[in-house]
Write a protein that binds this DNA or RNA. Structure first.
Length: 297
DNA sequence: CCGTACCCTAGTTT
DNA sequence: AAAACTAGGGTAC
């Protein structure tokens, strides 16, 4: 195993690894102490990507890693370590809710996950809590993903489109996917069969890209926005989930429109346009963790 | 654009 | 204490 550290001063605006990995953006990291969503900062997380194991934890001044490969380029990309958080926060509007969210969770970064896994995760997210979504993704990886042995321990990659396409709906239901099971299978078949690939959305203008992604079964506007934001680098995407919808009702009522498309446009502009997705993610995380004894930063 | 059915489970109420 | 009830990051039809 190779190992190393990434000094936090090379990550403009800092990093809050726990907030980044436990804010319902990514379901690809497993926390080794088993305290996902209830632990404290400082624990180790691991993921498998391109046949490699990557372990990370945050210390006082650095991101510490251990991997079967040079993890630095992977981490910079997966955790968007080059995003300048101070600059991004600076472009946002100066309103109380946003300032509070930014202040409380500074260092939270948007992730940049592998697109197929991201697509499947958010298909599974419908009407579901983050803890259970994570459990479903873990089960899918353990049962259908390639295994990787490192130092006597076995890890699992997220299943490929082929692997999920050749899994029966019954087997998927056994992973507690419920009515999402056929969605996952059909979407995997579309990708495996070459009918369409979510990566093809890359490069399209934002609304065209969102529309494109809704061709996958189980993908509506909200899930499409999640994939655009958390995997394809569309930092302006604002997924309109129930938390943001209630925030709109309470804090930005003038943005409430009749359709997803129009409300999306209004709140996107209200939250600063280009980086509106960053604002959304901070607000989402802030509202979700409100009242649960957040130490803040 | 609108309404309803859909699956599962932890947590709460009866 | 078992059994009903509720809600949780929506989407397909």
């Amino acid at each position: 195993m190779e190992r190393g550290t990434i000094p936090l001063e090379t990550c403009p605006g800092g990093l809050d690894l726990r907030a980044t990995l436990e804010s319902g953006q990514s379901y690809r990291w497993r926390r080794e102490d088993g305290l996902l969503y209830e632990g404290v900062p400082g624990g180790w997380y691991h993921t498998v990507l391109d046949g490699n194991l990557i372990r990370v934890r945050q210390t006082d001044r650095a991101l510490e890693w251990e991997s079967t490969t040079d993890a630095v380029p992977y981490l910079r990309r997966l955790l968007r370590l080059d995003d300048d958080l101070d600059a991004i926060v600076g472009t946002g509007p100066d309103d109380p809710l946003l300032c509070e969210a930014y202040a409380a969770h500074r260092g939270l970064r948007i992730v940049n996950d592998p697109v197929f896994a991201c697509l499947i995760s958010f298909i599974c997210s419908a009407q579901m809590r983050v803890g259970r979504i994570h459990g479903m993704q873990t089960t899918l990886a353990d049962r259908f993903g390639a295994s990787l042995d490192v130092d006597g321990r076995t890890y699992h990659a997220f299943p490929t489109p082929d692997q999920l396409a050749s899994t029966s709906v019954e087997e998927l239901r056994d992973c507690s996917l419920g009515y999402r099971a056929p969605y996952v299978k059909r979407t995997a078949e579309m990708v495996a069969g070459g009918e369409a690939h979510p990566a093809e959305a890359r490069g399209l203008d934002y609304e065209t890209a969102r529309e494109f992604l809704t061709r996958f079964v189980g993908v509506g506007n909200k899930v499409a926005d999640c994939v655009l934001l958390f995997s394809l680098g569309y930092l302006e995407a604002v997924p309109l989930d129930t938390w943001i919808r209630s925030a709109i009702e309470e804090y930005y009522p003038e943005c409430d429109r009749d359709s997803y498309r129009e409300t999306s446009r209004a709140i996107r502009e209200r939250l600063g346009g280009e980086y509106a997705g960053y604002a959304q993610t901070y607000v989402f995380h802030h509202l979700r963790t409100a009242g649960t004894a957040e130490a803040g930063e």
